[in-house]
Structures are given as structure tokens and as C-alpha cells.
Amino acid sequence: MTELVVMAHDEAAMELAGRKLGESLPDGGVVYLQGTLGAGKTTLSRGLIRARGHAGAVKSPTYTLVEPYELTDGPVYHFDLYRLRDPEELELMGIRDYFTPEALLLVEWPEKGGGLLPNPDIQLEIAVVPEGRRLTFTALSNRGQAALARFPA
């Protein structure tokens, strides 16, 4: 299991970390984003989604559960399960339709998915620390290990 720790001292550094992660996952994958409310999961996702070619606004999918981005490098689906009451809601929304080999899935609050989500390639824990944010990327698959090996310093 490969682990990479990165410090992000401000919002720009969070977006940069997201951009680097996006560039490290050229062939899709599944990323679990974990951290407290306000830790910066959506900020990091914004950097990643923009790195994949999206030029518009990136908003939190807190109320819609998923924001799809159909991009030239392949689709990115940004999930925020914070307000999910029951994992069965994911089945009703057709969650499995998003699980395609070329898709990149970003999942905030994955623990609320109740076992209906695919296993992550990378698990990212965002910790709020006095210096800003400590990002701990853990590779949980061969794809995740390859991505962290490509992650620019």
C-alpha cells in the first residue's frame, strides 16, 4: 500500500493538489475524499475537474448527490453523499450507470454509500492542521499505485 502526504497551506494549494491528482489519473478511477465539513474536499475536486478540461464553475453536489462532467478526457462524476439518508437512494438514482472503466469518480463522504460504491483506487484523507491541510493519499489498487507514482512533486 503506497501512501503520499502533501501539505496544502491555502485554497490555491488545495486546487493545485487536485490538479496534480487529476493529471495522475489519465484513465479514470475511483477516489474517496474524506475529511470534516469545510476541510476542502470540493476545493480539491475543483482543481481536479479543471485539470481534466472543465472551464466552468465547479459546485458541490451536496443537494444533487452527483455533478456529471462530460469531458474530452472522459467523464468525471463528483458525488457528495453527505445528505444521503439511505444507501438505497443510490440504487434509485442508477448509481451503477456511472461505474464505467473510463470514468473518474470522486466520492465525498463514501462511508454513507453502504457498500454500493466500487472500491477506491485512491483514498484521500484531508486533515485540518494549524498549517493548513494535510492530504494523505493512499493507493488501494494497482491503478492507484500507478497514479501516485505519477503524482508530480
Rank of each mutant, 00 (worst) to 15 (best):
D97E: 14
V31E: 01
D86A: 10
D121E: 11
D10L: 08
L117F: 15
V128I: 12
P130L: 07
Y82S: 15
L81E: 04
F79A: 05
K20C: 02
L65T: 07
T42R: 12
V76P: 03
E70G: 07
Y98P: 01
G22N: 04
A51K: 06
L48A: 11
L33K: 01
L84V: 08
I95N: 01
L25N: 02
E102K: 08
L105G: 00
A57S: 14
T64P: 13
A39M: 13
E67C: 06
V30N: 01
G144W: 02
A39K: 07
T36W: 05
G28D: 01
L124R: 04
Y63T: 08
L33F: 10
G53Y: 07
P130C: 05
D97H: 03
S24E: 00
V31T: 10
H9T: 07
A17C: 04
N142I: 13
L117K: 07
S60A: 15
A139Y: 09
E125K: 13
E3R: 13
L105F: 04
G94W: 05
E131R: 12
N142P: 07
R134P: 00
E102M: 02
T138G: 11
T72N: 15
L48V: 09
E131C: 02
R134Y: 08
F137A: 11
L106Q: 04
L148Q: 03
T43G: 09
P101D: 08
A8V: 05
T2A: 10
L81T: 09
L71K: 10
G22E: 01
I95R: 00
H78L: 14
L44E: 11
E111D: 15
G38W: 09
P61H: 10
G114V: 08
E108K: 13
P118C: 06
L105D: 02
M7R: 12
L90P: 02
D121R: 11
N119P: 09
M93T: 03
A139K: 09
E70F: 14
F99D: 00
E15D: 02
G22S: 02
G22R: 01
A149Y: 06
V6P: 01
Q145I: 11
L90N: 07
P87F: 07
K41E: 06
F79M: 14
Q34W: 01
E125S: 08
A8C: 08
G113L: 10
